[in-house]
Write a protein that binds this DNA or RNA. Structure first.
Lengths: 354, 354
DNA sequence: CTGAAAGCGCTTACAG
DNA sequence: CTGAAAGCGCTTACAG
């Protein structure tokens, strides 16, 4: 494999000149530059990333931490991962995966070995044990998730609080009062998964304000639990609305509603776009906006890495109140997707309101 | 951040001695080693991965190439990615993501910049444009997929051919004759996605041999197409069995079968475990075995990287016929998971047969 | 505008 | 058994 020395020799210049055209940090006479670029092309030369990393202390790698706990709705993670990878690539960065249950020590190792220039952390918890590590790190981090205290790092997420209120608003507008709320399992709430408790808080606050009669059910994600719980609710005619924030609910719901003849039940859910896309969801949902979250996360990171702003301009939806040491908290506005007729063969998405 | 020099100073030895205990490639007197290890602990030292990569030409990084075409059933990809990452970590490697549509040039760049020690390639096609690049690469690759010609690289996949035959066998055993086969969209077949055409070939050959009356439908993965196609089949009473190899089919099927009162229809599908886990699948399926595929893929790669065999012994299910230059083709045996009563509240998995 | 030299943090023959 | 030296492939002051 060609090195910078080979290029220099072929172009008849010094290695530093080659380096200058490579980095673009120094002016090189057009004629020289031309010769160098030509040589690069001929030799099919690419900078050795390890060597460059050693010389610059920039790896052009960003670490993606997701420690898939057993419970997580694994499928939807792909959307985040792909969007993160693509956005990172747009900025010249690559993604390195950090999985494994003991992510704290994994992160420490990653940081100590100087393998990444920054971190994106998914599945954030309140009092996340990884937060102190991230704060002390020499490189910037961004959370996808919104703990109360995100000092020292940037954070982005759907505004789950607002989403909870939005859903209750819809129930209220439909003049329904008694509503069942199926949310994530107990342990997810106890762990403090930020999306779980933020949506729940929003929903419960909204219900209280609108004087709705809300029953909250924390439900496991296995088939048995879901079916049992959903059946119980559907068979109780006093429920006028069913709100879910638990991805395992969606797939079985349409079947159950048909079987139990509860097409009258107002159903509203928070769900990942791929769930809505792949399944037959004849009810309204709020998109979790994984792609927007992912792209914003990377943009926030780039901002820290490249000083202020990126080559592609200001990240969308990030307001400019960034003091030198002030970290961002970006909340994405929830949007309701309304879906038309129950059990029709079409399943068109209508406009959005928020 | 501490360097090897700091450690050497603190331990009162030379840098090469520290390096020796780090790599473990040279004997170091126990007392010295102790001092060095102590110093490492105190300084919280970790080898700088860029520097090590430069010195050894080993990055301890493996590249994961998946160029998510629009069509792919994205959710199931996570299972592969996580399993690959975990298995890689077991061997001390990390995963670097290579996404993007133009994966050929991305791969070339990755290889030229010496960023990875090996590659895992998903979504492999017959005549995959990436294959020539992989063959010429200085580092080994393994495919998850099974093109006719996989010379120069290792390959692993579920035995989709056998799976196709197994399914037809089941239909035959149920004494059914007329069977509808819903498979992936036309363009996936035209692209030559190996799983698509291998299963199809197996199914069609099996049907011919068993004298079944098979109608094959290539079907898009959007809701509308799926519903239309599935409804058409279900409403045709002449069909006795429905075989699907198209992930978009599963989610809607149970609802449709109830609505159309076709609980008599024999349904068999090939599907990812998470699909079976998350949905209400009251019919028999063949697991695509993503985790087994992923782990085997990494093991094959490790074998190339570390000479013959890994520290953890021979990879499971890999027979030992590896001549020095002979590349492996590992086919995982398909297993049928039978599921009990139609539309009961339970959904227990019964034993497997193959 | 270009080049010689030092240095990034490690490993690895090679002496001793 | 340990250490001094060279080298991996780049970048970056610093001279010229």
């Amino acid at each position: 494999m060609a090195t910078i020395g080979d290029v220099a020799r072929l172009a008849g210049v010094s290695r530093s000149t080659v380096s200058s055209v490579l980095t673009g940090r120094k002016f090189v006479a057009p004629a020289t530059r031309e010769r160098v670029e030509d040589a690069i092309g001929r030799l099919n030369f690419t900078v050795n990333s390890g060597a460059r990393a050693l010389a610059t202390s920039r790896t052009m790698n960003i670490g993606l931490v997701f420690s898939f706990r057993q419970s997580m709705y694994v499928p939807s993670a792909t959307t985040y991962v792909v969007a993160l990878a693509e956005e990172a690539r747009l900025h010249g960065y690559r993604l390195t995966l950090v999985t494994g249950s003991d992510s704290v020590s994994e992160i420490k190792r990653l940081l100590a070995s100087k393998s990444v220039d920054g971190l994106v952390v998914m599945e954030v918890l309140e009092d996340d044990p990884r937060l102190p590590v991230l704060r002390d790190a020499a490189v910037p981090s961004v959370l996808i998730g919104m703990p109360e205290d995100s000092d020292g790092v940037d954070a982005v997420d759907l505004d789950y609080l607002a989403a909870g209120r939005l859903v209750m608003d819809q129930v209220h507008q439909a003049r329904h009062r008694r509503v069942a709320f199926v949310t994530w399992p107990t342990y997810l709430h106890e762990m403090g998964a930020t999306y779980a408790h933020r949506f729940r808080t929003g929903a419960e606050e909204g219900a209280r304000e609108l004087n709705l009669d809300l029953s909250t059910f924390l439900c496991d994600v296995d088939q048995t639990s879901i079916l049992e719980r959903v059946t119980g609710i559907i068979r109780d005619p006093s429920y006028e609305a069913l709100v879910f924030h638990n991805d395992a609910v969606a797939p079985v719901l349409s079947t159950m509603l048909v079987r139990e003849h509860r097409e009258d039940l107002q159903v509203l859910g928070l769900c990942p776009p791929e769930l809505a896309r792949e399944h037959w969801l004849p009810f309204d949902t709020i998109d979790t906006q994984p792609e927007e979250s992912a792209r914003t996360a990377v943009k926030l990171l780039m901002r820290r890495l490249n000083g202020t702003g990126t080559e592609t301009g200001e990240p969308d939806g990030i307001d400019g109140r960034d003091g030198a040491d002030c970290h961002e908290r970006v909340l994405l506005t929830p949007r309701l997707t309304t879906r038309s007729p129950w059990f029709g063969l079409e399943n068109r998405d209508a406009g959005s309101s928020d």
